[in-house]
Amino acid sequence: MKIGIPRAFLYYKYHYLWETFFEELGIEFIVSPETNKDILNRGMTYAIDESCLSSKIYLGHVEWLIGKCDYILIPTISNYASSGTVCTKFQAIYDVVKNTFRDKDIKLINYNIDVKNSDFEVKAFLKMGRFLGKKNASCMRSYLIAKQAEKTARVMDEKYQEQLLDEKKIKILLISHSYNIYDKYIGAPIIDYLHDMDVIPIIGDLANKKEAIYNSFEISETLPWTYNRELVGSIVLYKNRVDGIILLSSFPCGPDSLVNEIIIRRVKDKPILNLILDGQEGTAGIETRLESFLDIINFKKDDYSGKI
């Protein structure tokens, strides 16, 4: 038995949890490779034209896994109760995959999180474990260990970022869904570019989630989506320790289309750059915009320190 995990979407939020859970249960798994041009092209072939770049990438990863494993893991998420809902894509993706690849030999394993209707994460994982023929007790044990591993990893990430925030260099806060910013093909080039320019990228997604949600209300009262709330809250947490903010979205992200506009209209004390990733080849356009954004920030910095 081998599980296939698409390296896209929720992978970046949950991979510590998934990987440890399967390892502890003694279940073999395979993760699709980092996104590359070929995977994106496969995704574009199968996806509905108008769907967002991130979901095209997702379908590309699913397609890559077909024939290489017994089951492909496609979890769905409906809501996290009081902390919000998610983009409808995360509820739809299971049926989208099923219908898109109906004519291929594809078997899916799914769990659903719907906290409002008491489908909690732990319940979902126990169910998935049972589906894989494991006993409840060992599923529970594996889940708890996985949860601990996830927590440790998050704390480490957060601590590391704290150190970066204390550095003297120019720091830019990147507000971007984890599946975009960590994606090798669409997000990583931005991070690499900032490093090349001797700028420290601060990742909004690494902020402490609970604190971020709590602080997000300072910027927006009715924001319905948990993941966006976490990002918006990270602006409140980090804003005073960075020199500028980049909003990085994949085209045409539904939630981001509105949330970015709220951020631009309400966060007035930092320069903000709104970058839309469309998966088109060539980074020249993006680099030009990044370069001029950094120029503005450098100029401001010099201005404040009285160099001009």
Binding site: T88, E221, T222, P224, G254, L258, V259, E261, I262, R265
Partner: peptide
Amino acid sequence: TGGGCRLDYYGELQGQIIKD
């Protein structure tokens, strides 16, 4: 009003735009 999709966030942003 709201509606189980992006519509749920129309109100706050439209209110802000009209205020601006």
